[in-house]
Design a protein around this nucleic acid. Structure first.
Length: 868
DNA sequence: ACCTCCCGCCATGCT
DNA sequence: AGCATGGCGGGAGGT
């Protein structure tokens, strides 16, 4: 049933189907008032859009779109109120315009590039679905239909869907078919991405790049060299590239068969791009930096110009979609060098650890569990670029994996199996009551969101802290809406379901319980890749919003005020993953390389790449860097086990046990979180798996303890357990740092990655020690890590901020302090856009924290450009 | 002249 | 073989 394959789902042509679902949702929504435009307007099934679509949008319509795009608020209002009206009107307007303006010209004009922009298209696309769809309803999306309706080639739809998929706003059901999840999972996804980003030390990378640039400007060639190395090395060494797609189990794995396909670069890129925002303090990321980081992963040397350009193109594509989602907005960063296009995060702020998860995280102490998805994921990982090239696509391996997966699915699909199957099913099947609940929750959620996403988060956080993991759901219906509503307890079980990862997969899935969000994520670690750490220097450019053009001014206004932030180092928290020393496959590049080679395939492309001589930096520098021990980062898939509510129900039931256990576990851990306990989990990971969270050094607990811990998580873990993956250990990081001189030998970094994931785990003792140093000398950029660790507790934000010396004060429990600090900085009200002043504070804080360490900060001026 | 990024060729891989 | 996906980069619209 679950459709092991898409085929099973036969769909009518969408319209009928689509609509029906939509309508339902609309009904539900109606109650709320928020309805989706699509639905709302028409009771009738026919889609309004098409009409409009049929013709190109008139300028007016375009303007509207643009406006809406510009101001999310407006858009949201419209949507809520009834996009239908707008839509209906739009067409009319168009007509009028058309007539007024001679048709020919108009039409010609219409086609203007802007009108065809991906961003606009994405808006149209999004307008069709509710932000918070009723899971119970069928939210299938037929790509063909959409393409038709929107009058665009399917290729464009793929661009949009891929990005949405990266955020788990949609998931592939089958060929040509996607399921719309809306923003239900968004917060969770972002939290997970943030955690991963922290783990990957994107913040550090950003800093390094900035620093490098900075130095270059100064003509510190020598230094530059180093930096260059860093950059290059990082990318190359970093496992980033490895990072695979972060998945929500429920969502994605269905499509596994379909997904199996390659790398999903756009999706992965999208996730990475988002991570950069989540991890960087200013939350402003320039395309240049983003491109460098993304490329870096692949090959240092590859950095040729052509590649860079291509990357930039893709980033624009992604940025357009993200902008449509109101997650980012375009700004310009002015540096000494000049003005650079950049994007500012305008989405919800995410608590340091994954939304909510972090607090829990500790608890999560990361149990490893295997899930079905795990397999798939594993398979993916193997094949993913990350792996060695050889593996990447070896057909035999692929087949093997697939066959295994298919078998597993079948098995899992069996009623008895707790495994969650396709979400779709669950959603469809979802019990009535849950649905209602869900709807209510959804409504609440939507309302809340409208107000501001932030508040919610905080709430969640608080709850989490309190240790009510599950309770949260009830408390904050909105939050939980999806899965959680259905049956929080149940949900977890799903996550629990352990699938054992195929031995093949290198990655080991780790399940992290997430308190707030409820669901736990499974993270598949891949062999970490070595990363070079360099002392964070950051340049901290100050961003000045040149002006917030945003007409709408919606949230962004903050921008307007000059925001000065130093992006740099701010977020130290990187969790260092257990770096494992594993030799592993570092060179991911293969894939990329292969591509390049293949590049020719395209008719045109000449491999110009090599030209980039200038781009590349002296390798010598690299050598220098090499000396430094590298840290490996695990790149893996993060899978939120609980994930979708829909999923949960069925599987959950089967697993009642787990659920029961889980909840208890969480709590148990939860309390520990604050303090200490998490360790056990960490240990486990440390020992057997290189889990993120674990900090190697700290491990206090014995594996056995771990076993005990897992309780909640279930045996599955144990099973999974066997397969040890190597993660980069934090130890490595420490080592590296020490090496670098960043950290005193005594001090150790906690492996724990970001707040979200399993940050906490670190044993307090160690940390305290490490922490202190940090405090003392912010000089070491690293301290931040501690923060992150702590963050888990505090939860507020993982951000580096730290300005708070407070953190340090408590060596033992450093955690809270940072969080607090962040809380200060962040304005509750506008999550996304803290008042300018707030930003300022941040900067200051950051600076203080890193203090001297960083190179003189540059100031960046950020100007939002909304042209339109 | 540079920034954006649309367009669609064609590789890739599933069915 | 055919179709669905989606990588990729030329080249053109915008500013």
């Amino acid at each position: 049933m679950e459709n092991q394959k898409e085929n099973l789902f036969s769909e009518p042509h969408k319209r009928g189907l689509m609509r029906s679902p939509l309508q339902e949702s609309s009904k539900a929504n109606v109650v709320l008032a928020e309805i989706q435009p699509d639905l709302g307007p028409l009771t009738t099934p026919t889609k309004p859009k098409e009409v409009s679509q049929g013709e190109p949008w008139t300028p007016t319509a375009n303007l509207k779109m643009l406006f809406s795009a510009v101001s999310p608020e407006i858009r949201s209002r419209d949507q809520k109120r009834g996009l239908s009206e707008n839509r209906s009107r739009l067409p009319e307007a168009r007509d009028c315009l058309h007539e007024h303006l001679s048709g020919d010209e108009f039409e010609k004009s219409q086609p203007s590039r802007k009108e065809k922009s991906l961003g606009l298209l994405c808006h149209k696309f999004l307008a069709r679905y509710p932000k918070y769809p009723n899971p119970a309803v069928n939210n299938d999306i037929c790509l063909d239909e959409v393409a038709e309706e929107l009058n665009v080639e399917r290729r464009r739809i793929y661009d949009i869907v891929n990005v949405l998929e990266s955020l788990h706003m949609v998931s592939r059901l089958a060929k040509n078919r996607y399921t719309w999840h809306g923003r239900h999972n968004l917060t969770r996804t972002l939290g997970t991405l943030k955690s991963v980003g922290e783990e990957n030390k994107y913040a550090e990378q950003i800093m390094m790049i900035k620093r490098k640039e900075y130095e270059q400007e100064f003509d510190f060639i020598k230094s530059c060299g180093i930096e260059d190395h860093v950059i290059k090395s990082n990318p190359g060494q970093n496992g980033h590239s490895d990072m695979c797609f972060v998945e929500l189990p429920g969502v994605e794995f269905r499509a596994a068969s379909v997904n199996s396909r390659k790398d999903k670069s756009l999706r992965v890129m999208s996730q990475k791009f988002v991570m950069l925002f989540l991890v960087s303090t200013p939350q402003i990321v320039s395309l240049e930096i983003a491109a460098k980081i993304l490329i870096g992963e692949d090959h240092v040397e590859d950095l040729d110009k052509s590649k860079f350009k291509t990357k930039i193109r893709r980033l624009y594509d992604i940025a357009n979609v993200l902008s449509s989602l109101d997650l980012i907005k375009k700004v310009h960063v002015t540096e000494e060098r000049g003005r650079k296009p950049a994007f500012k995060w305008t989405g919800p702020e995410i608590s340091p650890n994954n939304s909510g998860s972090s607090p829990v995280m500790p608890l999560a102490s990361s149990f490893l569990e295997v899930e079905q998805s795990a397999k798939e994921n594993c398979a993916k990982n193997l094949f993913s670029t990350r792996g060695k090239p050889s593996f990447t696509r070896h057909p035999s391996l692929i087949k093997l994996v697939k066959s295994i997966e298919s078998d597993r699915r079948k098995i899992s699909s069996a009623p008895s199996s707790p495994v969650k199957n396709s979400k779709a099913e669950s959603s469809q099947n979802s019990p009535p009551f849950p649905n209602k609940m869900a709807q209510l929750a959804a409504i609440c959620k939507m309302q809340l969101e409208e107000q501001s996403s932030e508040p919610r988060k905080k709430v969640k956080v608080k709850l989490a802290r309190s240790g009510h993991y599950k309770p949260l759901a009830p408390l904050d219906p909105a939050v939980n809406t999806e899965l959680e509503l259905l049956a929080p307890s149940l949900i977890q079980p799903l996550g629990v379901v352990p699938l054992i990862p195929s031995p093949l997969s290198s990655a080991v899935p780790v399940v992290l319980p997430q308190a707030p969000s409820g669901p736990s994520y499974a993270i598949y670690l891949q062999p970490a890749q070595a990363q070079m750490l360099t002392p964070p220097h950051g340049l901290s450019p100050t961003v000045c919003p040149t002006h917030s053009s945003n007409a709408t001014g919606s949230k962004d206004p903050t921008d307007a005020p000059t925001e000065t932030t130093t992006t740099d180092a701010t977020k130290p928290s990187a969790s260092c993953r257990p770096g494992n020393v594993q030799p592993a496959p570092e060179k991911q590049g293969c894939k990329n390389q292969s591509k390049e080679t293949t590049g020719e395939r395209g008719t045109k492309r000449t491999s110009t790449s090599e030209d980039s001589g200038p781009v590349k930096k002296p390798k010598e520098d690299l050598k220098a860097l090499e000396n430094v021990p590298a840290t490996l980062f695990p790149s893996g898939y993060l899978i939120p086990l609980t994930q979708c509510s829909s999923l949960g129900a069925e599987s959950v039931l089967s697993n009642t046990e787990n659920s029961g256990t889980l909840s208890p576990n969480h709590r148990i851990y939860g309390s520990p979180i604050a303090g200490v306990i998490p360790v056990a989990s960490s240990e486990l990971t440390a020992v057997n798996f290189p889990s993120f969270h674990v900090t190697p050094l700290k491990l206090m607990v014995s594996p056995t303890s771990v076993a005990a811990v897992p309780v909640g998580n279930s045996p599955a873990l144990n099973s999974s357990h066997p397969v040890p993956t190597q993660n980069p250990s934090s130890a490595i990081v420490n080592f590296t740092l020490q090496h670098l001189g960043l950290i005193s030998p005594s001090v150790q970094m906690s492996a724990s990655t970001g707040p979200g994931a399993g940050t906490v785990p670190v044993s307090p003792h160690v940390e305290s020690a490490s922490v202190i140093p940090d405090n003392l000398s912010s000089r070491q950029g690293r301290p931040t890590n501690h923060d992150s660790l702590f963050l888990g507790q505090s939860q507020l934000n993982g951000q580096s901020v730290a300005g708070t010396g407070a953190q340090q004060p408590v060596p033992v429990t450093p955690k809270g302090s940072q969080l607090v600090a962040e809380s200060f900085f962040r304005t509750p009200g506008g999550p996304t856009k803290p008042a300018s002043s707030s930003y300022m504070d941040f900067d200051g804080a950051n600076k203080t924290s890193f203090g001297t360490l960083f190179v003189p900060q540059r100031k960046l001026e950020v100007s939002t450009e909304d042209a339109h």
